[in-house]
């Protein structure tokens, strides 16, 4: 445990030695872990297939971008905007969920997919007549996060170490990740978490246990959305530029692949899935390209295509051969008090 913590703390400096790019890649991977853990609440815990999850990420990103950029000339601090982004995303989640969560699971999948597309279309088109989102050109020069005098846009030296922007974001993201994992673990093993699992296992039996299934599903939906909202805000701050292109259906599918491949419902499995699917494409980029150059003298297969094919096959093969994912969730066991305990 301590070793893992130390390794995680030292990691960015080691990566920075190999190039800042790797720190950035790691940051994006953490963002995807945050997204996957959010989606895991919806898909893994409550068993609701959400195919438009990236729309909530987009909502969070745009809330941040609109309230902290020259676009409207508003520059609110991040500690106001990030929670606001989470709130707005949760609100969108509730708005979408309220009428649709009564539907059967596969219908919900399609409606969420449609919702994801609607959000993207609106982001693309709300550049006129009133310029809200700046359309396909996106929003640029988004403020970096700043805590008091500490700006995440520049490099500071501390204790003889260089803290570049990406490294600062790394630590902020790491802190958020720890918080999100903590929240997830607490939620899973709680009255609400058990109710989610009950809905996932058998909705009718869940109702017969006194669970208001519509409400509990809405809660999962809004909760998952709020995680995506925060992650979206961080994405906007880190990138400094966002456009609707970052929020296409493929991204939703990617996050879903991470959850499914890792192991729906198992927090550690989901993290594993997100890490694998975040880093494998990067490795491909650095191996497939030179290998093809070497063997064929030119690029035959775009690593991007290989990445997508891996996602596709991962989904099909995992479902056929290992439906629980690489690291399936196990039956939760409780440490029981001694048998002599007097029954209430």
């Amino acid at each position: 445990m301590v070793l893992v913590a130390l390794a995680l703390l030292a990691l960015p400096f080691a990566l920075a030695g190999a190039g800042t790019t790797w720190v950035r890649v790691t940051n994006l991977a953490i963002l995807f872990i945050l997204l996957s853990l959010g989606l895991n609440i919806v898909v893994g815990f409550a068993g609701l297939l959400d195919l438009g999850y990236i729309a909530f990420y987009a909502v969070g990103a745009y809330v941040y971008a609109l309230l902290a950029s020259p676009h409207f000339g508003i520059h609110w601090p991040f500690w106001v905007i990030l929670p606001l982004g989470a709130l707005v995303a949760a609100l969108f989640g509730a708005l979408l969920g309220a009428p649709t969560l009564k539907l059967r699971g596969d219908y919900l999948a399609i409606v969420t997919l449609g919702f994801g597309e609607i959000v993207r279309i609106f982001l693309n088109n709300l550049g006129s007549p009133v310029n809200i989102t700046n359309g396909p050109r996106g929003i640029a020069r988004i403020d970096a996060i700043r805590i008091g005098e500490l700006s995440f846009a520049r490099t500071d030296s501390f204790l003889g170490l260089d803290f570049s922007g990406p490294i600062k974001y790394y630590f902020l993201l790491l802190a958020m990740l720890v918080a999100v994992i903590f929240i997830n673990l607490r939620l899973q093993n709680s009255r609400i978490g058990r109710a989610w699992e009950a809905v996932r296992e058998d909705e009718i039996a869940a109702r017969a246990m006194g669970i208001d299934t519509t409400r509990i599903k809405l809660l999962a939906f809004a909760m998952g959305a709020s995680f995506a909202g925060v992650a979206g805000g961080m994405f906007a701050a880190i990138q400094g530029f966002i456009s609707p292109e970052s929020f296409v259906l493929v991204e939703s599918v990617m996050v879903l692949s991470m959850v499914v491949l890792g192991g729906m419902g198992n927090i550690w499995g989901v993290i594993l899935g997100a890490l694998l699917l975040s880093f494998v494409p990067e490795l491909l980029r650095y191996t497939v390209q030179p290998l093809q150059q070497y063997f064929f003298g030119r690029m035959l297969i775009d690593p991007e295509v290989i990445r997508m094919l891996i996602f596709g096959f991962a989904l099909v093969l995992v479902m056929s051969f290992r439906p629980g994912g690489l690291w399936p969730s196990a039956v939760r066991k409780r440490e029981l008090a001694a048998r002599s305990e007097d029954p209430a």
């Binding site: 006194g210 669970i211 066991k333 409780r334």
Partner: peptide, 30 residues
Amino acid sequence: RLFANISALENVMIGRHARTRAGLLGAILR
């Protein structure tokens, strides 16, 4: 219609849902 992938104990604990109150905040803060 049991919750097949959940332990016997937690199946029964789910039955407590209607008689308990803890919400999101309670779950997180414990």
